[in-house]
Design a protein around this nucleic acid. Structure first.
Lengths: 360, 360
DNA sequence: CTTAGCACTCTCTAGCCGAGACTGCTAAGA
DNA sequence: TCTTAGCAGTCTCGGCTAGAGAGTGCTAAG
């Protein structure tokens, strides 16, 4: 629902109220707005304008004869029409970029953890990163390596250059020297198949395979949850609990925050679904589907690995510095895209190398 | 500092005060103790005994004319002399054992996460699990597998049956067909060496190796942090934030709890150093080195993988159900030891298999 | 040594008051 | 018509008081 455009003066006053409230966490009085010099009029005039802003639902008084605080709609107007997404300074960009280069280890779990950590440190807010589901990542090949007596390492690589591995156990006599055959066969089946379909594909082809090889593939199949699926901790990572818990406004629903921390799925759901398109999405207070979140806002962006999107974002009180955070998320999403798609995405380089390249 | 043994009546009254306080979170009055039927005397007598318990420093009054609450020393006496570590029921044991069997995937990170989750669910408290450092795990072999054009997978296995892997990049022409040679050489160097010494050992031997092989080993060496060291999230895991945040007594130092959540090292430090000996260790309130923890207690136990110990424990308010938690931690430590040492630790089975075996 | 009884202390809640902070309104001025 | 000074009105907040309730310590009797 689009709101009518405000007059210039209304906009200035709305802005002043919001920015002052973000700083002080207190209701903003007409005289405070005048003191800010955001508008060259008297407090009585400001009061009149505030009244009209209140009628439009953009600000409200907690009680008669208090100052005004922004409503969700007020923040929404501010985010959409008033604020300037703050571009990061050269220094800040350099710091972030340096950090990302050093966390590039090729291991998705470490990347996800590192992104959260850096965003959280920068924003001084809770940050969450969700890895792409990987379901639509396309498999390149599967290898089987005999480790010792009876243990076998299965390694799957994807077109985007990620690697997953898992160990399983099978007696040497059961393998009957058919390890390489089994790997070649599975690679033939799966090459070009999305990870999400791997299990089904192998299952459907298994029947036609003669016995010693078949046993090997069956054992491989049993490990597929480990080989093809990401564990919770590898898929979702948050950082910055201290910031959100420090906010006095959250001490009352600390229990909800605790539940979020414990439930990776819930956490992922919060940021998933926003910003698949590549922009930065801001969700304010009551716009959130979860009612427990009605005093929190989300700033979420996305990045892309191979064919699928992951998300990263910042969660804080509605009273947050939107301009700064939008700038941050935007820049991080840019860096991550660079990191994973490399220069022209056919080069099929491992993420660490891409980063090393960027740096030196 | 050992305290004098209390009389039977004193002990009963101390116990009554503590157990009632644990239930209600409120100061316990003399009449409440009488109501509990823990002692067949009048409230006036109870008051006299309470006075002497107060002189001994085991309980105190928040203010004149309030009931008594236990001091840390009171809890300490209770834990050491009064409470019965509650053994788990058959049902509870079965539940836990079932859970552990299902989480056995051979991946240390998943085990650590799963142990925390189960303990937390059971105890309804924050639970923390620390993986053994692995520094003293002994390497068995190192393999190198060529993945595609220019990527190589390094796999290290240890005597205890854990596997770590990492990918690095090296052009085919640079390898010069010496991949197998390099792996054999490194295995020869490292077989029997503790993981913690691996990097140093390889570095010191590298000089004497002729060139094409040398390049390969040098590249391998560059990946060693990934290959031989555990990432934070794999090493420490907590679960049950919701429980600790739900406690009203913690809302005031929520900030500290947030910091704990954010800092895996701090979390690990809290439980490390307790209970290397195999027993269950209880740390109560002010006994804790960190002053922020002066209203929290820890119940910690240890388990063993290969040569080193990991810890797992429960963190909650001093007002916690010690008997139950000691029983839990004790049982979990027993299960984990079984899971990882298998039947006779020379069988060198991967953890998942050991668990599968236990189950059926 | 135990216990009934009682005076005493301290907390907790509700209610009240005055100070302070802002507002809305009104009426005068540009 | 818009702006502004001035003022009355409203609401919060902190401090204060009073009364009820809870629980103790003490005393003296059993």
């Amino acid at each position: 629902m689009k709101r009518a455009k405000l007059s210039d003066r209304e906009e200035r006053i709305l802005r002043s109220v919001i920015e002052c409230h973000i700083k002080t966490a207190k209701p903003v009085s007409s005289s405070a707005v005048v003191r800010n010099r955001s508008v060259p009029v008297s407090s009585a005039t400001v009061r009149n304008v505030m009244r009209s802003l209140e009628e439009k639902g953009l600000i409200l008084q907690p009680h008669t004869s208090a100052g005004r605080i922004p409503t969700d709609a007020g923040y929404r107007y501010y985010v959409d029409n008033v604020m300037e997404p703050r571009n990061l300074t050269e220094q800040e960009r350099a710091d972030l970029e340096g950090g990302f280069a050093s966390l590039a280890t090729g291991d998705l779990g470490a990347v996800v953890a590192g992104v959260s950590r850096m965003m959280s440190d920068f924003a001084r807010q809770l940050a969450v990163t969700v890895a792409p589901s990987g379901e639509r990542e396309v498999i390149e090949q599967v290898k089987l390596v005999s480790l010792e007596t009876d243990r076998i390492l299965a390694v799957a690589t994807t077109r985007a250059g990620l690697t997953r591995s898992a160990v399983f156990e099978l007696g040497r006599e059961e393998v009957g020297g058919k390890l390489a055959d089994a790997a070649a066969l599975v690679t033939e089946w799966l090459s070009g198949t999305p990870v999400g379909d791997a299990e089904r594909t192998v299952k459907s082809r298994l029947g036609a395979v003669p016995e010693p090889t078949r046993r090997v593939i069956a054992a491989l199949l049993a490990t597929s949850p480990r080989l093809f699926r990401l564990r919770g901790a590898e898929r979702v990572h948050y950082e910055g609990a201290r910031y959100i818990l420090r906010h006095p406004e959250f001490s009352h629903n600390a229990a909800f925050i605790g539940e979020i921390f414990d439930d990776e799925e819930a956490l992922a759901d919060l940021v998933r679904g926003h910003a698949e398109s590549g922009g930065v999405s801001v969700t304010i207070g009551g716009e959130n589907p979860k009612k427990e979140m009605k005093h929190m806002s989300l700033v979420v962006g996305s990045y892309r690995i191979g064919g699928t999107f992951g998300q990263m974002g910042v969660i804080g009180p509605t009273r947050m510095r939107y301009g700064r955070l939008v700038g941050l998320v935007d820049y991080v999403s840019e860096i991550l895209d660079e990191l994973f798609s490399g220069r022209g995405r056919r080069t099929r380089r491992s993420p660490d190398k891409a980063a090393d390249g960027d740096r030196g």
